[in-house]
Nucleic acid binder design. Structure first.
Lengths: 240, 240, 240, 240
DNA sequence: AATGAATGAGACTTCATTCAT
DNA sequence: GATGAATGAAGTCTCATTCAT
């Protein structure tokens, strides 16, 4: 019964179509995040987007297609943000750092996005043909992670990274780890703070720090350094 | 509401109940892994367990309770395995290493368990009161990760770990990271190999290696005090 | 909202189940005939049978299964009637005649049944595995048409049927023809009378007469005057 | 681009309309046969014909009209074929035989057509005003089956057919029977061969043979009066 | 004349759960 | 304690058709 035309389409047909598509996708994304992908029904997308169910089916063949479209959308935007954050970064280590920092920023500023991707992974990744995922990623991120691989090679070459690293292995291990950590933190959301007693991004940045330390070439000239807080260590054995 | 647990002779009532419960839980777990938690219906649990739906409701109040029971079950077993693997490990670093190795082994040998927990996180964690999760964890793993925290303190104290680590922060960061990586790898399953070209656990073990390198105290060319076990860790040993 | 329990089930569970099944089937059959198989919706079966849609699905897996059950039902009853009408018929020709007469009677007295089977043929026969149809028929009519084939053999042997008949071919040709004619007449229903100006069964009985004349052995001894119908076949001409 | 209507030169408007109409009808017919009339949706006709649904509605008021148009089309063509096959057939029996042979040929060469008509009968005949069907037939086949009736009269007159036949009754009975058998065989398609173990048209031709035997005058051993068999040919060509 | 967009009504089916035995 | 039967609510999706351009 909601037969209200909210906005007159002033533009051409394709423009109108794109606008409708957006409406559906935006509504879907919001709902997916609020309730979880599996807890959202087409009826909710209908009433939330203002597009009739039968109309939605002229834009997407079924609910799963909406999920995929949302994922593509979300990843594309994230990729654009990543691209931007890497611009004008000169050397290898700086770029790697920038990339990881970017992921931390995403966790803070776009936790919805990260959370959604986490859910998508958990719910869809295994039950869908791998090709589709790979295709999606290659469309969005054409160079793939090769750029990152290049960075590691550069880093090894210029001595800023450990020379015993296998670029391919390292790249995939690190990326997977960082994504895993990021998504887990996003999934748990505020629970992390209750459980871990730390703000989400603090944990994540510490992860990054440790990983970078692990990647970094060992200090060439062993210098000496006073310890910061040796006493504090054994103070509190158990907090909780 | 279930009976008190007493002696439980094989043919007794409580024993029967326990057997039924197990049947339901086992069937549910298998299905959850095969199809994903949200894609399993009570009817399927019925036909797969051989227990009638109405009977199931005499063991579990609703479907969610089954999910929680399965999770508790699964975590309990995992925890027992962990406990066992940590036994008879002498010092801090060895224990940390053992713990991380344990998680790698889990990934390989109990990927179903890991995957299930990943899915649970993504789908349930946010929609349920945090307390319940925390309660669950504390029941299963009393002491929680504090043991791990203790290890870090020890490591800092004995100089095998970086002294600029904040035990609490580090502990949580590392644990979250490792769990995140582990679950992500388990979720993606064989897709990782297609996409990354590396066996799942190879990636995971490289992650562990890098993390440990990052945690390790920077190599101070053995100065006036020989640490407990400087030789073992730093020797770049490529766990696998 | 029709939440009215029409009859208390006084008997046992199986009895009750059978009664429900009947209710569904009877309602379905009536509707199928009234509106045509394809024009009947589950909702109609629901409201007509008084059984909730979700309940129906505990008796039949889907709509097609209902159709098949109805067909089986209908054929079974028809088969029983046929059996009965053939009882106590002594020789071959008499039995053949009785069988064809039976089909004429069916057309008159059970046109609904015939019509339904005609529709089933037209709509389902081609789109379903042949085995299923054959299985159905063999369940209902175990001897199959072999009995009829035997009759023809007998008839050829005793000289009442043309000796140039191939029992198998003849049997199938005649049966198909008679069924085809019967179902077509039932399908067209009263339209036949409007179009052909003849009562339905009159046409059908004329068909039978001609077929029997065609099957009959040519007059054995060309006697002095070829009467219209000197032999015994003609005795019962069935004008009706 | 719209031109004036003229005499239908190839590029003219009416010609265009006719082409579109054909496209729709051809696509519909193919689909109707493949899937069954009731299982074909307008959307399928659209995608199969390449004509947009809204455009289709400028050629046909609704889906039923398409069905009727297809039937008309199909019958017209069949009728033309029939006409042709009857040409140059001299006498009554020969014409009757030719007609029945024609139906056998149709069954073999145009089983799609026959099958479609069978389906139409089963699904539409009863639910539509009889007049429409009759009108349709009279348009296509003016004179209707009266030609056939004439043949029978001729046959009776010249002694080649049984003289106890009632021309009207016989005509309708035989036509109905033959059509019924033909359509049933076409509907069952290859199932007949599986079930009956005989090629479809073999059965049908046997049916024809038996019917003709039944119609034929009993073999009077050519006695004193050779009927006007040779001469009668030109006697009565058509009764009406 | 042609068509892209829209849509209300309704199709079939599934589900978690309760009730009565 | 176990279970067969029942079910309301909701699920996703399809359909023939109309509207506005």
């Amino acid at each position: 019964m909601p037969r209200k035309k909210t906005a007159k389409p002033p533009g051409s047909y394709p423009a109108h179509r794109e606008r409708q598509r957006r409406r559906i996708l935006d509504a879907a994304w919001t709902l997916f995040d609020e309730r979880g992908i599996d807890r959202v029904s087409m009826a909710e997308i209908t009433s939330s987007s203002g597009v009739q169910p039968s109309t939605i089916y002229q834009y997407f063949a079924n609910k799963d297609e909406i999920v995929w479209a949302v994922i593509a959308d979300v990843m594309q935007k994230a990729s654009a943000r990543a691209q931007q954050s890497l611009e004008a970064t000169p050397n290898a280590l700086a770029r790697i750092t920038a990339l990881l920092d970017f992921m931390a920023d995403e966790l803070v500023n776009n936790s919805v996005t990260v959370r959604f991707m986490a859910q998508f992974d958990a719910m869809y990744a295994r039950h869908w043909p791998a090709e589709r995922l790979i295709t999606l990623e290659s469309q969005i991120n054409p160079g793939g992670f090769n750029a990152f691989r290049g960075l590691i090679c550069d880093g090894i070459a210029d001595g800023s990274l450990r020379h015993d690293l296998d670029p391919d292995l390292t790249m995939h291990a690190v990326i997977n780890t960082v994504i895993g950590a990021q998504r887990r933190l996003a999934s748990l959301g505020s629970k992390v703070e209750q459980e871990y007693g730390q703000p989400v991004d603090r944990l994540f940045r510490e992860t990054i720090r440790i990983l970078l330390l692990g990647l970094r070439a060992p200090e060439p000239p062993p210098r000496r350094r006073p310890r910061k807080k040796p006493s504090k260590v054994q103070s509190r054995k158990r907090t909780r």
